[in-house]
Design a protein around this nucleic acid. Structure first.
Lengths: 288, 288
DNA sequence: ACTGGGATGTTTCACGTGAAACATCCCAGC
DNA sequence: GCTGGGATGTTTCACGTGAAACATCCCAGT
C-alpha cells in the first residue's frame, strides 16, 4: 500500500498541485481547461486547510479583480450531481474569486478517484510552509486513518523523521485553550509538545505567554517530579538564595566559577577552571 | 535618507515586486502592461542574484512553453537606448522565457529613477528565502555602499537585528574556498561566521565537512588560545584518555557522574548529583 | 505462553540561528 | 585633547526545532 503510493507522490505529483497544475492535468488526465460558473465549485469537505491568511487573500482578490483567475483550479466532478465540481487544489483561488465577484473561473477537470484526489490534496497541503502545526497534524492523521499510511511511510513521503510525525500528531491531544494558542502562534510547537506532559496544560500555556517560559522550562515542569503536586517554581529563572549562597561560598573557596543547577532533588554542579593547576587542586579536594 | 526610504519599503512596495506587480505598477506608475520582444529586455547588471535553482527554472520553462508568461516582468526604459528595458523584477521569468523560446513577453514599464529601481530590486532580492548568505551579504553591502543605508536602517527595513546584518556582511571577507562551500550549502552561515576567527579558514572548512565539526567546535578553534599555534584537536569529539580516566576515577570516588570538558588550558568539570545527600557530600569535599 | 518484528509513544537535548552583550572606531563639538 | 553619540565589529550562547534514543504496544508465528 505504502509502496504502491510512493512513486505517485514524487516530484511530478507535487507539481500537479503547484504552478504546473494545468500542464500535468491536461496531459495526464485529459480533460483540459475550461471555464465554469463559480457556483459549480465546492470545497473539499475534508480539506484540512481551514485558515487562510487574510492579507494574502486580499492581495489575491485584488489581483483577480484586475486580471481574473490566471491559474486554473484543479477539480473533479462530484459523483451523481450535475454541474458540480469538488476542488482538489486551488481553494484559495476560489475563495478570492468569490470575493472578487467573478462569475466564471478556469478549471481543469481530472478523473481522479476519491482516494487519489484526497490523498494528493492532503499530501500537498501538509507541506505548505504557512500551515500551523495542528493543521499539519490533522493532515497526517487523515493520511494514516483514511489511507492506511504508517508514520514511517509519511516520514519518507514528507521528508521528516518518524518521530517528528509522531510528535506532531500528539499535539491533537492538547486541551482546547492550549490548542488555540498554538494555532494562533502564541506558543510554539516545541512548547505545545512539552505541555503534553504537564498536569495543567492550559494553565502552563498561559504562563508561557505571560512569563516567557522556555521550552526547557516546560519540559522540566512536566517531569515525573512534578507529580508531587508541589507548586513548581520557574526553576531556570529563579535560583533560590540558598543555591546562590552556596555557589558563592564554593566559588570563593575554590577560586573558580561555580554554578549549581538544581532540579527537584537532583541537579548539576559545574565548575570552570582556568588552568591545569586549578584542575589539579580541584581533583585533590574531590579525592580527599 | 533612511527615514525617507522606509515608508516606500512597506507592504505596498513588497507587493510591487511580487504577485501583484502588475497591479501596483499599473495604478501607481501608470504605464500599464504591454508585450515586447524578449530581446528588448536585459538583466539589471547590478542585480546580486546570480544563481537560479535549476529545477525551479525547468518547471517554470515548461509552464511558460504551455501557457506563456503569465505574470509580467517589471522593467524600466534603458536611458538613451531605444527598444531596451532593464529588468527590475522578474529576471527568473525572463530567463525561463528565453529557454522556452518565447518571442514576446508581457512587461510593465515603470518610471522609476535609477536609484529607486535598484533599491527596490535589491531590497526585494535580499528577502528571498532561497538566497544564499553571500548573496544576501552582497545585497546588504550594495544598499549601504550605493544608497548610504546604515546597518541599523537595514535592520529596520528587513526586520532582522543589526548584528545579523553585520555578521552577514562579514561573510564577504572569507577566503574563496570557504565562500564557495558556503554558497553551495556545504557549510552553514553559522559555521562560516565562526571561520572568520580561525587561522586557516579554508582548511577548517574542509574539516567541517569531512569530520562533521559543529559551530561550537569551530568557535572554539577560533578562540585566542588557538594563537599558540598548537595543533588543535577536535575537542568536543575526542576526549583524551587522561581526561576519560580522570572522569572515571572521580566518578567512582564520588558515586556521581563526572564530565570534564577540557579546552586548551581551561575547561569545566560537571558533576551530576541525584539527591541532596550527594550534594552535601560533594560540598564537604570541596570545602576541605 | 513466548518471541520477534513492526508500529507507535515519549523524552531529552545537540544543533545552527539570531541577537544580546560587549568592544572598537569615527567624527563633531567643546 | 577630551567627550559623547552613532556606527560598526565581534563573540558567545539561549532558543525552538528536529530527531536520536528509549519505552511500550500489538500482532503473527511457533
Amino acid at each position: 500500500m505504502a509502496e504502491d503510493n510512493k512513486p505517485r507522490l514524487g516530484r511530478g505529483l507535487a507539481a500537479l498541485l503547484g504552478d504546473a497544475a494545468e500542464e500535468s492535468g491536461a496531459s495526464e488526465r485529459g480533460r483540459g481547461q475550461r471555464r465554469v460558473p463559480i457556483e459549480f465549485l465546492r470545497p473539499n469537505p475534508r480539506n484540512p486547510r481551514k485558515s487562510f491568511d487574510e492579507s494574502d487573500l486580499t492581495d489575491l482578490t485584488d489581483s483577480i479583480r484586475e486580471r481574473g483567475v490566471l491559474q486554473p483550479i484543479l477539480v473533479r466532478p462530484v459523483p451523481n450531481v450535475s454541474d458540480a465540481f469538488e476542488i482538489i487544489a486551488g481553494e484559495r483561488r476560489w475563495r478570492a474569486a468569490q470575493r472578487a465577484g467573478v462569475h466564471d473561473v478556469p478549471v481543469v477537470v481530472i478523473e481522479a478517484t476519491d482516494r487519489d484526489a484526497l490523498e494528493i490534496a492532503i499530501v500537498e497541503n501538509v507541506q505548505r510552509s504557512d500551515l500551523n502545526p495542528l493543521e499539519e497534524a490533522v493532515g497526517y492523521d487523515r493520511l494514516m486513518t483514511d489511507f492506511g499510511h504508517t508514520q514511517l511511510d509519511l516520514s519518507k513521503i514528507i521528508g521528516k523523521s518518524r518521530s517528528h510525525i509522531a510528535n506532531t500528531l500528539r499535539l491533537l491531544k492538547l486541551p482546547d485553550t492550549a490548542k488555540a494558542m498554538l494555532a494562533d502562534g502564541r506558543i510554539s510547537a516545541g512548547h505545545a509538545r512539552a505541555l503534553l506532559a504537564v498536569q495543567d496544560p492550559d494553565g502552563v500555556a498561559q504562563r508561557i505567554v505571560e512569563q516567557g517560559l522556555t521550552v526547557r522550562d516546560v519540559e522540566r515542569l512536566g517531569q515525573p517530579v512534578a507529580d508531587q503536586g508541589v507548586k513548581q517554581p520557574k526553576v531556570t529563572a529563579e535560583k533560590d538564595a540558598d543555591t546562590r549562597a552556596l555557589e558563592k561560598t564554593l566559588g570563593d573557596i575554590l577560586g573558580m566559577i561555580v554554578q549549581i543547577k538544581h532540579r527537584g532533588e537532583s541537579g548539576e554542579v559545574l565548575i570552570r577552571y582556568q588552568d591545569l593547576e586549578q584542575l589539579e587542586s580541584l581533583c585533590h579536594r574531590l579525592q580527599s
